[in-house]
Design a protein around this nucleic acid. Structure first.
Lengths: 223, 223, 223, 223
DNA sequence: CATGAATGAGGTTTCATTCAT
DNA sequence: GATGAATGAAACCTCATTCAT
């Protein structure tokens, strides 16, 4: 049973290799244009072996999402910790959303394009996994908001839960529109990057308790 | 050739009947679980006839979207005209987004679930159609924002185009999250409806030039 | 009933316009990649109207074939008449095959590519038409062969009918191979044109009674 | 991994069973009247399994052609080896064409009826396969012709490549006319069999260097 | 752990053809 | 003579998933 550990590690490694391959393929061709056969070839395993590590193609998708989210949330926890007031923590959070979306454009495109449909038909097991992930993440926002209300840095005329929801939903959805919408930006004459980077400035007055200070704080944002 | 007109009307009527049927079916089972056979049966036409009116299943989807959008924008034009200041127009617009999403929950769910993927693989013809629709809609927002900046009702520290984009993207994406996300609201202890209806209150300070007046204007919102 | 004649002419004209259009389309895309819709558009008629002039798509194909054949045979009769001996007539015939195939490469490609299948499923009516065409043509060969045997210019150790058959089949099939085979010529290092033009020289000894004279006669060929 | 060999054989066997079934069906109904469903039923496999062995219906057709050609060429090599002079080798080759076409009338009919169209839309992979087959076959003819020119048994006034081409094209196309043409033979009063069997006698003077000896050699032919 | 042959359930699309107007 | 809406019958191919070896 000493070998078990090594086997476990090996298995975990294989699992990650598969996720890597699927990620590459999904990014370049889109979830539904990639067959399990292709993924199997990419990792140099048989199709059957894939099903030893993942019970379905959809599960593979959610495994990608999970890995990304885990990374994302872990880093977010650290970033937020640098904020002194609740408001600053929220700022850092939004900033992190922005940075992450810019560092992972392919992931974002894939997730926003195929996520809705896959989440809609999600099976209980994956649903559970995703729920746990969100359980780790949501309180971070809520706590920061509450902290900000208490320390006077965040507006206090809205339910903290609700306020957290808005911040989070906007950060997520607005920063990651589906690829087809990205195109419309240039048609309007503004770059997608500007749109993303100016979000804090737009949003600040809706979060801060003293909006008049947003400009100053904005500088903090940009560094 | 006198009959042409009547025939045109009849053809248009049939086209709409097909869209009606497809809409019903797509709402209840989801785009990809509905076969063209089913749609044909629902309208009591042959499958081939469907392809006389729409060149593909995807085109049928976009025909549904187009019809809804056209209605939506038409009504929005009227609603916005009741606003006196630019800010009020934007308020009315957001309000209309909210109302419309509440009146058409099935449409919204379908569109947000299947839209991303279908837009991603959209063909040039449908892309053109959708573009034209958006060309009719986008200026409305931009003009209202500019008007608001000029009349002093809207903040003037952001590019009007950009500001319009934020308002629109948030109204659209936040008010219409994909169905799987809707569920997470109840898990957090707030109703999706509250979330939707409080959006103006949350957003006001980010749009208005004098945020301290948002509460008053809020009343206007709710009527 | 005076108008009948004019109407007849007009109808005939329309018929020919349709054949023209179908010919163009079939040449460029191949019989099975051309739809009746396309043909209708090309002649600026409705699809239904096509069926007034031709009872089926296959019939349109045979109409093209018929028109070409009629032209071909008519000219052949004239060409052959210039030959003095039976052998010379056969020479002229072969020469005419060669010239015609070079002047109508697109027709040849289409006919050899799609003919086999269409002839296989030919309906009685078209079969009758094609038979009549062949009845006009076959005797020309046979008579010339017989004439040549009698005048001593053609070998006399083979049934004239059989000999005529060989000459004809070889002229037809060898001069018009299906397009895919044409390519193999260049792969072998000889041009398709050379192959076609040298046929008489190759065939002469198999037809002439005095093969040793073929070379001389060859000169006649080439003019 | 020891089992691999057995599995390979089993796979090869299955492949051949599928070709067998397709062959039977194509012969009896024609390529385009046979559905993959039917073939699957005939071999008692699922339709999907067919696509595991052959990537398309067209590929199945070419697999039939390949198998036949391979057999044909292999036997031809042996037959030709019995000829002493180059001319005799060519004789044996033509003779083998004749015999083969008589032994495989169904194959011939199918190949000549559907081949042209299928070869026209052939994909690169199958094109490659067919090319390789032809590379194995073509040199046989060319070598024999060259040999015959050198040993004085074959006429020397034509490019050997060209002469080989004629012999081959005539043997192939003339001996295997499309079925619709076969019928015309009886209409002319000669049997298709006679037509096929007398070909060597007709062709001999066009190949031999001393045509006057054709009669003698003809006897050799017939045995 | 891994393989890969086999399954099976569609689903979109294409068109030649017809026929009421 | 001409139109064009409507029919209807297939048929190919894809692929996630399973399971004997």
């Amino acid at each position: 049973m000493v070998a078990t550990d090594r086997q476990q590690r090996k298995k975990e490694k294989r699992r990650n290799e598969i996720i890597d391959a699927a990620e590459r393929l999904f990014y370049s061709k889109g979830y539904d244009k990639v067959s399990m056969d292709e993924i199997a070839q990419e990792v140099e395993l048989s199709k059957g072996a894939l099903y030893f590590y993942f019970k379905s193609k959809d599960s593979l998708f959610f495994a990608i999402i999970s890995r990304k989210w885990t990374d994302f949330v872990e880093a977010m926890i650290e970033k937020m910790s640098y904020g002194k007031t609740g408001f600053e923590k929220i700022q850092r959070m939004i900033q992190w959303f922005i940075e992450y979306s810019q560092e992972n454009p392919e992931y974002n495109d894939m997730a926003t394009t195929f996520g809705p449909q896959l989440f809609q038909r999600i099976d209980p097991e994956n649903a559970q996994t995703m729920m746990e992930l969100s359980m780790k993440y949501m309180p971070l926002v809520h706590c920061a908001v509450k902290e900000g209300i208490e320390d006077g840095s965040i507006r206090n005329d809205l339910d903290p839960i609700l306020l957290g929801m808005y911040i989070q939903m906007i950060s997520f959805n607005v920063v990651s529109p589906d690829p087809s919408i990205k195109n419309s930006f240039t048609a309007q004459g503004i770059s997608y990057n500007t749109y993303v980077e100016m979000l804090p400035k737009f949003l600040c007055p809706a979060i801060s308790r003293s909006p008049e200070k947003c400009d100053n704080q904005d500088r903090t944002f940009q560094q």
